[in-house]
Amino acid sequence: MSEKSVKITDENFQELVLESEKLVIVDFWAEWCGPCKALAPILDKICDEFGDKVLVGKVNVDEVKQAPVNYGIRSIPTLLFFHNGEIVRQEVGLQSEQALIDSVNQVIS
């Protein structure tokens, strides 16, 4: 896992995601998911592009039990965009870098 993103667990979800002051993109992923692996470097680029404005959090669905259930995840990769504790956007499946940049811009503008 990249150092640009933070590891999200059921324990720190409240603090790091819901109480965050900036936009948080939560990536639900797993080791066995090919498209998730393809998405990882793209999310790194999002971190580079937006710097302090965006936090990328990773939820490994094999390790984190409650969050995927709470948010009704039925396919990975799924990205949930949280702002002020609310889901403001969600994207299912692999996204291109440009599509993700556009999504982030829409949400933070």
Partner: peptide, 17 residues
């Protein structure tokens, strides 16, 4: 519902069922 209960990839999404 694609990705929210409809799937074309058992190996990707089976885990959630």
């Amino acid at each position: 519902l694609m990705g929210y209960g409809i799937s074309t990839c058992a190996t990707c999404d089976g885990y959630f069922f």
